[in-house]
Amino acid sequence: MNRLRVFLDPFLLALLTTVALASLLPARDAFASFIGVVADAGIVLLFFLHGARLSRQAVLSGAKAWKLHLATLGSTYALFPLLGLGIAMLPGVPPLVGMGLLFLTLLPSTVQSSIAFTAIAGGNVAAAVVSASFSNLIGIVLTPLLVALFMGKVGGGPSLQAVEAILLQLLLPFALGHMLRPWIGDFVARNKDWLGRVDRGSILLIVYSAFSAAVVEGLWRRLSGGELALILALCIGLLAAVLTATWLLGRVLGLPRVDAIVLQFCGSKKSLASGVPMAGVLFPAASVGPMLLPLMLFHQIQLIACAMIARHYAQGKEAAQG
């Protein structure tokens, strides 16, 4: 059953259903304005909860493995963006496809799946918690800066209004959530299941709002089936390149096996949970849908690939111990 859940991720199915709904029944006029306001509130709630969940103790306790964490950050915020910029500038890659793929490469790493796959593979779970958490923490500031730096080179980038929105919708609620953690941390931990559903519901609402605006602006007339196939192929190639690079980097740095596993899993994935609200803040409404398509495809591809790799490592460990 767990394997089936990886290959048929229920949340991805919910996302695809939301995209289909927005394509058939997009929000328009007053309803679109209402949905946009509620989606903005969802973004604030998401980052407030991100801040409340971040454990200061976990960050401090794992700071000693600086070589591993720097390597993970280097993969997430240097290797990925350089590959994304190269893809966006390839001859024959449509601007709409290139911009979406570039935005994907500028996002922080996942948290839950990175930790889960590290645990399955027999890696250093504590270090994975620190690497993934710190990637998300620094990404709140670094991702918008990278968007301004890299996407400006290919015709995009956030406006001054987006900078203000980042401060009010991302940084401020995140900081408030983290400051209130001593008082609300236990409540968040006890109710993580239904708060997780609130997270996912907020993301679905943001996706519906984004794709509604894109559909009204003619998204499916601008993006062909061939371009969707191109996005899929480029996502597979991008993930394969980064998985290979992080595996080689672990060997070059002489990391212990348990830490090399952390580097590969934390350094090769991108966060859908962070990417959806960030896109909603950084880009005009009609542009958010195209920006999210590569991320949604990459999200599922990385789950499948990393699940297979984690099982392979686990079997190797069992064989060595046996």
Rank of each mutant, 00 (worst) to 15 (best):
P277Q: 01
G122S: 11
A241H: 09
V216Y: 01
G123H: 08
M179Q: 12
F31N: 11
A116N: 09
L49H: 10
V276M: 00
G155H: 09
K269S: 07
A127L: 01
V130P: 00
L15Q: 14
A30H: 11
V281T: 11
A63V: 10
S212F: 06
D186W: 00
L104E: 03
L171S: 08
P144R: 00
A165M: 02
A213H: 12
P277R: 08
L176A: 15
R257Y: 06
A41N: 07
A116W: 03
L137W: 05
Q264V: 12
L171C: 10
F134C: 07
N2H: 13
L223F: 12
A116P: 05
S33Q: 15
L219S: 05
G237M: 10
G84L: 04
I231D: 02
D186F: 04
A20Y: 07
A65C: 01
I115N: 04
I236W: 07
R28C: 03
M151D: 08
A32C: 01
H69I: 00
L25M: 11
P10D: 02
L13R: 06
A20C: 05
I43E: 10
S61F: 02
S271R: 05
S55V: 02
V163N: 00
S109G: 13
P182A: 11
V130A: 15
G152L: 10
G157N: 02
R200A: 13
L149C: 10
P277M: 01
D9H: 13
I206F: 01
A320M: 12
L142R: 05
L13I: 14
